[in-house]
């Protein structure tokens, strides 16, 4: 009885969320994987178990290759861009800029906007019209004599352009993470380094940056999983066009246009797996770290 008194209240408290997450996250995930392993290629058929057939077949489709490539380009540009820009902003802030609070708010604001709103504004900014038809950024570039771009309609680098709105939106958040990280570095450590003859760059290189590693990793995980699932931004900027196709958009088309639930579930499974590649090592790492402490 005495024992139960220690663990039972805690268990009761978390039971509702365990049930909810069990049903609506893991239950649904399991259901999705089961569906992906059937041949339910329209809404009517029952769907026989076909194992991993769908997971293999999808690699025969030109569109799948294209959307995977797009997702990779987008992820690399977006994650690196947001990390570098966020770090830079945090670095400048940390140097004790005047009116820091105001700047911090300004850079954080974009995060409060939904990707859809961002996308609609950037669709106009990144309009591919040039010269007399130029609007948005091309108009600006034209006026100041910079080259004009096709932006997201560029066949090769379109997805890199598509990452710009995402960088714009998320780098403030990364800045906040890094700023907290910078502030977490004890002043004594820096002073100790300086006393030992380290120049300012060396302080950052050898003291601050290594201490920021956990923050960088968290930022990487957060940005990476947003990026691999990206859907709303793409649809708001370009709709469901092949030129900016990503797995999440392909999934939507597979379910609602092609009416192929098994294919949609297969793509969804791949998205989950690709996010898992990011998240699971992080979870293992943080659990181990907690144990060590």
């Amino acid at each position: 009885m005495r024992r139960a008194r220690t663990w039972l209240p805690g268990l009761l408290l978390v039971t509702p969320s365990i049930i909810l997450i069990g049903v609506f996250v893991y239950g649904m995930l399991g259901w999705n994987f089961r569906l992906a392993m059937t041949d339910k290629h329209d809404e009517v058929s029952e769907g026989e178990f076909v194992g991993l057939q769908n997971f293999i077949d999808i690699w025969d489709q030109a569109r799948w290759h294209l959307s995977v490539r797009h997702a990779i380009v987008f992820t690399v540009v977006f994650v690196l861009g947001a990390l570098v820009l966020g770090w830079l902003l945090a670095f400048l802030m940390e140097k004790g800029i005047r009116g820091e609070g105001t700047f911090r708010a300004i850079y954080l604001f974009p995060m409060a906007i939904s990707f859809v709103a961002t996308g609609i504004v950037w669709r106009w900014l990144m309009n591919s019209g040039t010269d007399e038809r130029a609007v948005g950024l091309n108009r600006l570039f034209d006026a100041i004599g910079l080259p004009q771009w096709q932006w997201f309609r560029d066949p090769d680098w379109g997805m890199a352009a598509m990452a710009l709105p995402a960088i714009w939106q998320m780098s403030g958040y990364v800045m906040a993470l890094f700023l907290a990280g910078f502030r977490g570095v004890p002043e004594e450590l820096r002073e100790a380094a300086r006393v030992d003859g380290c120049n300012e760059w060396g302080v950052y290189r050898h003291v601050v940056l290594p201490l920021l590693r956990p923050v960088t990793l968290s930022a990487l995980i957060i940005l990476g999983h947003i990026s691999l699932k990206v859907f709303d931004l793409i649809v708001a900027v370009s709709g469901k066009q092949i030129i900016t196709d990503v797995p999440a958009v392909f999934m939507w088309v597979a379910v609602f246009d092609s009416h192929d639930p098994a294919k949609g579930a297969t793509i969804a499974s791949y998205i989950v797996l690709s996010v898992a590649i990011f998240v699971i090592p992080y979870l293992i790492w943080s659990v181990r770290k907690e144990r060590r402490q």
Binding site: D42, A62, R63, L66, P155, Q241, I242, I243, D245, V253, A254, D257, S258, H259, D260
Partner: peptide
């Protein structure tokens, strides 16, 4: 029908990238 149309749109979209009539 809708799945057929989705497939045609997909092919047209891919064509815009490749300009490959045969494909």
């Amino acid at each position: 029908n809708q799945p057929w149309l989705a497939a045609i749109n997909e092919q047209v979209g891919l064509f815009l990238g490749t300009k490959d009539v045969k494909a």
